[in-house]
Design a protein around this nucleic acid. Structure first.
Lengths: 145, 145
DNA sequence: TATTTTAACTTGCATTTCACAAGTAAGATG
DNA sequence: CATCTTACTTGTGAAATGCAAGTTAAAATA
């Protein structure tokens, strides 16, 4: 895995800024959540996710996530209409970020999904291992590289 | 600490969605970074931060962060013009989120500040403890409550 | 094989947010 | 009291967002 690429002009070299420029919007992390925790893999599934993303925004975010090497796309061999989206290793590595964001909100806001939160809180490492195991072998080679 | 408030209408009850609605933009987390890691406390300092936020956006973000109870504001007793912004306990609790975002970007992108990254990577817990210690006692009572 | 469905988009348009520049009010400074 | 600072607000154009409708290629159906 060639870890680092020069990248386009960023506002700054700060790693947090890099994360924010890739993920700092109202939809990207929710799409990654849907893939990581709910196993969503197709456009239609994302589109019908609870929060209700607009079709043009979804297409744009999928494009950008793929351009950043966070997700990968391939055609479904069984159905030529479908594209199958999956997390790359880079995308899977976002599991700790999602976990901390979930735990933070659960600690300070009135939120739902107590089962997930309980599981994450009870044993963070075990939860992260489960995500990685579920995705082991599955990621497709990223096209953007 | 009254942990949870009913909160306004959200797109969904998912804790990740709650986090994204509060922090999912291109500036909020950078402001928190400036407070947490660089010790910035005034409008002017934020304004002159490296990435160069616009004044109206900064005012808007500070307002929203305060409304969410993430930061608190009080007047500088020594200079009546100045407002002193500080992290609330809720804001300090974002340290693990920032840490994971920094480590993720540092692992997968070409970024700067290797000293910070090294420190975070070497001992995450020690780093988080240092942030908490630095802010111990300092947070001001949140006005938004 | 012709027709209808389905999946994954694109396009158009109104609304909201953002970025940049300039202006303002209250408090400090000389 | 004139000037400077600090923390903003306001105005304006550009960009992003949200919603509805349309498009294309492949698959399912009649």
């Amino acid at each position: 895995m060639r870890k680092k690429k020069p990248g386009p002009q960023r506002r700054s070299g700060c790693p947090l800024n890099a994360s924010v420029e890739m993920l700092g919007d109202r939809w990207s992390l929710l799409i990654i959540r849907d893939m990581m925790l709910l196993g969503f893999r197709t456009y239609k599934e994302f589109l019908h996710s609870y929060e209700g993303i607009a079709t043009n925004i979804l297409a744009d975010r999928l494009r950008k996530l793929e351009a950043h090497g966070i997700i990968a796309t391939k055609r479904d061999p069984a159905d030529g209409r479908k594209l199958i989206y999956s997390l790359t290793p880079k995308g899977i590595d976002l599991a700790p970020v999602l976990t901390e964001m979930v735990l933070w909100a659960a600690a300070h806001e009135d939120t739902g999904n107590p089962a997930l939160v309980r599981q994450m809180k009870k044993n963070k490492e075990r939860f992260l291992a489960a995500v990685r195991r579920r995705w082991a072998g599955k990621p497709i080679r990223a096209t953007a590289d």
